[in-house]
Nucleic acid binder design. Structure first.
Lengths: 210, 210, 210, 210
DNA sequence: TATGAATGAGGGTTCATTCAT
DNA sequence: TATGAATGAACCCTCATTCAT
């Protein structure tokens, strides 16, 4: 495919970039540990705890992420993306638009909704259309809504914001039921989805947006 | 009602300087200020801020509430009770069981759901049956559920826990929409309530409680 | 002069201000210790060192001075003022305008020129006319210059800025000779002052100010 | 001059990869970059900044200079020497001993007096007769003093230390006027030099050296 | 008793120096 | 050997809680 260059180039790169494999490994260890800790404890964690769990010194952590915020954002971006993707995949495999919607929620709420930092951030930024991670999620929801709406399955007037807010809202339910009643949220989900069906034709209240 | 005691007691106290009335006044000022601040900022507030707003010194505050937690709990008990009561009152005035239920939610979500500390604590303790404030809320919900259920208005299988969790969940939605989309949660409420109607007969998933 | 109020007032004040004598003492201890340390080591000192020397905890220090900068500025203001005042006093007592000028320099260089933080700050801000401490010094110099100039004792064209810069410059000399040749700067002073005499009529180079 | 060694040595080194030329080049790059940075920012610079500007890694830098101090000293030696030399050259070209002296100061203050690290170090070490760089400077001054003294141009009693201290002192003036009043120091220089003239016969104060 | 000053354990961050690649 | 990643002590600052007045 590439000819001689294909040979030369890697060599070249190898020369100038003494493959800092372990740096990458460290970076990943940091992100991994941070993700773990952030999922468990939210953004209020001590940076030292992350360093400890990832087995690196403070300096290493700060070399890779000059501010705590940078690390947090990196983790959030990553995990939001993973989250959106996993829920999207689940939705894709569904048989029909309604199943896609329900599967999406089920998957979304099963996986990352236990992630404390994700949910904290989601609560703060769900309305900000520019944030990468949330944007992906919103896109998925937008598609699901369009598909279900086109088939006349969805209650008229339901917006993407409604569906997104429902996700935040149920996500919170997941968090707080996680330890004592791990599946209780499922019932709420069922209830909400039923309330979203097209057979409810009563108009939803306007919210005088903004 | 009290007889001689009513006379003796004040005298006694009067001797030792401030006839306890001050203490009570202080305590109330502290609780009031704390409630205000906790509602605005959640439990992470600086204790100094509470002392400042209540006009008492740190020493006085800590005399009445040896731990920050004690003060927080006191406020939460009080405000949970107020919350439950105001929502109960609203429900009572409703014309029929279903209106009672919807009015209850509307009232509950309109008033105290903006109280940050209340919602933080609700999330942590909603499942603890012993906590006074939540217990009252639960009782109200229990009654509403019973009434609506008796009339066959409520979807079969809906439990008090479902309704309580719905409250937490929507309460969270209220918080996060408060600044940018102040009434968006109303739509979610409508959807959920519709999902709770008896015309949805599909069984709710069990949650293998505990 | 005051009548009964003179009696009442102190009582009043005593009531509302449980004379936090020790707080004041602490504040002074902090400032004193800070002045000492800043004089010895310059502004780069560790705040803990100041706390340690003043015998208070970090919290106390930060209660009185929310930022390290605040403490540093407080000390600098105080010491600049002391410095200007002591040099002014010395100058006042001199017999004639020229003696006033020389005495001023001698005094100024003898006292605070060993103060590292003072000199660091002086070097940075000597040209800023708004800084309190420096302003006082400049005023004194301005007067001395005017008096000596009026008597025709001062070399024509000498400005207040010249004299101020000479002070910074010789102050630096004091600092660097302090440990090994404690009075060497005196010779430099003598030389400079002689160069300032009116018998040098050659014009000074312009500096195209600004 | 060296015979066989001159041949053998390179060969030897050549076998083990980089024929030391690289090392020398690196070393020079480091020193060059360090000089630049030290001149701009003084000794408080981050070592990384030096590594960055010189284009070498930290390891290389520390291989050549095991301590930051070592590198700093190397640069200072080099730049002190350059400084002394340039001022000496200027002085040599002067027409008479007095012009030599004034030219020396003017040159010295024009060139390297803006070099922050040089001046920082000069302040610390001016009195240490063993330090190479300063020693050279001192020698130049010694000669200038001798020449001007022999001609009876210099105020009696002026020592080399006086002249050296004057240089430090005015060097500081250069630094602090550099940004706001770039030539103001020139006036101070003129004043000081006039104070050094032989027509001032009043004896300078002794400083009871050590 | 009420006051608010004092305490000090952490929390985020930097940087000279070492070490694996 | 050159690279730049890793280390960790030390820095500035906050806040729940205690204590002298």
């Amino acid at each position: 495919m590439l000819g001689p260059m294909a040979v030369a180039e890697p060599e070249n790169t190898a020369r100038r970039r003494p493959p800092r494999v372990d740096a990458i490994r460290n970076r990943e260890a940091i992100v991994e540990a941070a993700a773990e800790v952030l999922a468990e404890q939210g953004v209020a964690v001590d940076v030292r705890e992350i360093a400890r769990r990832s087995g690196v010194g403070m300096g290493t952590l700060y070399r890779h992420f000059p501010k705590k915020e940078d690390l947090v954002h990196t983790v959030l971006r990553r995990d939001f993306a993973k989250w959106a993707e996993s829920a999207r995949q689940a939705a894709i495999e569904a048989e029909d638009p309604w199943a896609a919607l329900t599967t999406f929620y089920r998957q979304a709420l099963t996986g990352y909704a236990r992630h404390r930092a994700i949910m904290e951030n989601f609560a703060l930024t769900w309305a900000d259309p520019d944030l990468e991670g949330i944007h992906q999620l919103r896109l998925v929801i937008e598609q699901l809504r369009a598909r279900a709406g086109a088939m006349g399955l969805l209650r008229p007037g339901v917006t993407t914001d409604d569906l997104l807010l429902l996700l935040v809202s149920l996500g919170h339910a997941v968090q707080i039921t996680d330890e004592c009643r791990p599946q209780l949220w499922n019932r709420l989900l069922r209830i909400s989805l039923d309330g979203l069906r097209a057979d409810h034709s009563a108009p939803l209240p306007t919210d005088l947006a903004r």
